[in-house]
Simulated scan of single mutants.
Amino acid sequence: MVLVNEETNERYKGLIEKLSEAEVEKLKGNSNFTFAWNEEQGALVYKLMIKGKKEILGLVSVADIREEFRLHINLLEASKKHRGKGKGIKNIPGCLLAFVCRVSFRKGYGGFVSLLPKTYLIDYYQKNYGFVQVGRQLAIFGNNSKVLVGKFLEDEEV
């Protein structure tokens, strides 16, 4: 997976790892993130970093809805300095979303991933990542998930 410095176009190898329950608890009061990540204990929480660095660039919390053969994204967030205009590193949300799609394929769920976005983000997820509206939620699956994995995780296999 490739992360890109928005200002210099320098490219970095990204790495996503699962956080332990203790690491999730340590996120309490972390000023780099807005959401209450410590409340995600019991969910699968992953961090995105530049390989060889310790800074957490983004986080995603995922629930495995086995009976529906899907993964549900509870929370997804880029750290404060890597979002909006003038962000340092781009592709953070895309890499995290593609990672969850890949996990869904590997579990035999066909890339089926859902999330419940804030209203103002619905168009963003649809235009930038290929999500479709399903009731109140957005979902991605099948070929759209494969496209996302190919775009953001590049050489990595589904």
Rank of each mutant, 00 (worst) to 15 (best):
K87W: 05
G88C: 03
G88Q: 03
I89H: 08
I89N: 08
N91P: 10
N91K: 10
I92T: 06
I92C: 05
P93T: 04
P93E: 08
C95M: 12
C95F: 07
L96I: 03
L96R: 08
L97F: 02
L97D: 03
A98G: 01
F99A: 08
F99I: 08
V100K: 02
V100M: 01
V100F: 03
R102C: 00
R102V: 02
V103A: 14
V103C: 14
V103T: 15
V103G: 13
S104V: 03
S104F: 03
F105A: 07
F105H: 09
F105P: 09
F105T: 00
R106T: 13
R106V: 09
K107D: 10
G108V: 05
Y109V: 09
Y109W: 07
G110E: 00
G110L: 00
G110P: 00
V113Q: 09
V113H: 07
S114C: 11
L115W: 02
L115C: 05
P117D: 01
K118C: 11
K118Q: 13
K118H: 11
T119M: 15
T119F: 14
T119P: 15
Y120Q: 12
L121C: 04
L121E: 00
L121S: 03
I122R: 07
I122G: 04
I122Y: 02
I122N: 02
D123H: 01
Y124V: 07
Y125V: 00
Y125H: 02
Q126H: 07
Q126C: 09
Q126R: 13
N128M: 08
Y129T: 11
G130Q: 06
G130C: 09
Q133G: 05
V134R: 15
V134D: 14
G135E: 01
R136D: 15
R136I: 15
R136F: 14
Q137F: 15
L138T: 00
L138N: 01
L138M: 03
L138D: 00
A139N: 09
A139G: 11
A139D: 11
I140E: 13
I140V: 13
F141S: 14
F141V: 12
G142N: 13
G142T: 07
G142V: 13
N143R: 15
N143T: 15
N144M: 15
S145F: 12
S145Q: 13
K146I: 11
K146G: 08
V147R: 14
V147P: 12
L148N: 10
V149S: 11
G150W: 12
G150D: 13
K151S: 13
K151F: 13
K151A: 13
